[in-house]
Amino acid sequence: MNMPLKPVFEPLKGSYSLEDCQFLLQPIDIPLLTVEEKERLMQIGGQHYSSMISQEYPPSDQYRTLFFGLVNKYKQRLAAEVAGLAKKIFDKKGGTVTLVSLARAGTPIGVLLSRALKHYYKADVSHYSVSIIRDKGIDKAALEYLEKAGHAAESIVFVDGWTAKGIITQELKAAVADWNSDSDYKISDELCVISDIGGMADLVATVDDYTIPSGILNSTVSGLVSRTILRPEYQGFHQCVVYSHLAEHDLSNWFVDEISALFSSISPDENASAQRDEASTGRHLKMQSYVDQLMLQHGVTDINRVKPGIAEATRVMLRRVPKLLVVKNRASEDVSHLLVLADDKGIEVSQDSAMPFNAVAIVANVNE
């Protein structure tokens, strides 16, 4: 019988400075699968996605050019949205804030919010990035670390990049409720995001489905850290792989520097208008209805194979085996990178001008 490996409870910094982000993850060395191998094992072998990880490769020159173009197009907007979110967090939490971003889509947004809170309010901010995994919950060892480190429970706010179907949001709410039922260190389950197309978050910057630039790259805009892993032979923090071989392609610090450099020309008071309201329920129901319709139309029985929104569709094109990409408008610059990825992979693209967001991808059934 294999004994569990020694627990790790030391923060990891990835390629960020520790002042910007501390990952409450433990780096491990496991076989890196191809995307196709991982998909086959998930669908045929019955292995949970969190037990495996695939190799990552440098983006092509064409894709990097698209990324830089989208940063240039949206950096002013994103900086303003981050500033507005920082104001909402400061108004709610005061001058001591513990940002807990959900690795890894939430990580660069957490870095930006940390910088904004310090810039505008001289706030005492700590930023940690932690693992949350569908069907497995949040990393309780990470929450225990926050408690032992002396961070006030009331100072914690969770951060992600966006919502889509809301599955991770629901996972977070359930995990926090479970944690609070068994702990005196009672934390809020409030979630802060840039884009709330799923109508599920609590503090939001926008409900638009637009291309948040950090959502179109993998580890090279997220501190060189992989999607999180959970394997039974390890104790302590959830795990990850650090893609050190991509260091020369890393844009993590360049990206947050590019956005945060704009804070001095932006007033947070003018950019804190988006609120979670009654319309959130309507947005969520509209998304749910469209996803149900799409599943029926294409004979999809597993909702986890349908990924709505630009960012989630991008994840499918980069990290899964896609079957179909549907876009609202082929001519929109917001989906230009998706069309490049679809062309590279030979994936069918269709257009539906009636969809309630700008893109959706369907993961292939490898059993077909």
Rank of each mutant, 00 (worst) to 15 (best):
M1W: 01
N2P: 12
L5K: 15
E10F: 00
G14Y: 12
S15W: 04
Q22E: 15
Q22W: 09
F23T: 09
Q26N: 13
T34D: 11
E37P: 02
K38I: 07
E39W: 08
G45P: 09
Q47M: 14
S50C: 12
M52W: 09
M52H: 05
Q55N: 08
Y57L: 13
P59Q: 08
T65A: 14
T65P: 02
L66E: 07
F68Q: 02
G69D: 15
G69K: 05
G69C: 00
L70D: 00
K73I: 09
K73Q: 10
K73F: 00
Q76E: 15
R77E: 07
L78I: 13
A83H: 01
G84D: 04
A86R: 14
K87A: 14
K88H: 02
D91Q: 11
T96H: 15
L99I: 13
L99K: 04
A103L: 11
R104Q: 04
R104S: 05
A105M: 06
A105P: 01
G106A: 07
G106C: 05
V111C: 06
V111G: 00
K118S: 10
Y120G: 11
Y121A: 06
K122Y: 10
V125P: 08
S126D: 15
Y128N: 09
S129R: 12
I133S: 11
K136A: 14
A142T: 06
L146H: 03
A149V: 02
E154T: 08
V157S: 10
V159A: 04
K165F: 00
K165P: 00
G166Q: 03
Q170T: 09
E171V: 02
K173T: 00
K173A: 01
W179L: 05
D184A: 14
I187Q: 12
D189H: 14
L191N: 06
D202E: 13
V207F: 07
D209T: 05
Y210V: 01
P213V: 04
L217V: 06
S222E: 06
G223D: 10
S226L: 10
I229N: 09
R231G: 14
R231H: 03
G236V: 05
C240V: 13
V242W: 02
Y243I: 00
A247T: 06
A247Y: 05
E248D: 15
H249K: 06
D250E: 08
L251S: 10
N253M: 12
V256I: 13
E258D: 03
F263M: 06
S265C: 01
S267A: 09
D269W: 13
D269A: 15
S273L: 13
S273F: 13
Q275M: 03
G282F: 04
L285Q: 14
M287S: 14
Q288S: 12
L294M: 04
G299P: 03
G299E: 07
V300F: 07
V300S: 00
T301F: 11
T301A: 03
D302Q: 15
P308S: 04
G309V: 01
I310W: 01
R315Y: 09
R320C: 12
K323L: 11
L324D: 08
K328V: 03
K328R: 13
N329E: 02
R330F: 05
D334V: 00
S336C: 03
H337S: 05
D343W: 05
E348K: 07
V349S: 06
S350F: 04
S350C: 10
S350N: 13
Q351L: 02
A364N: 11
A364R: 14
A364L: 11
V366Y: 02
N367T: 13
E368V: 05
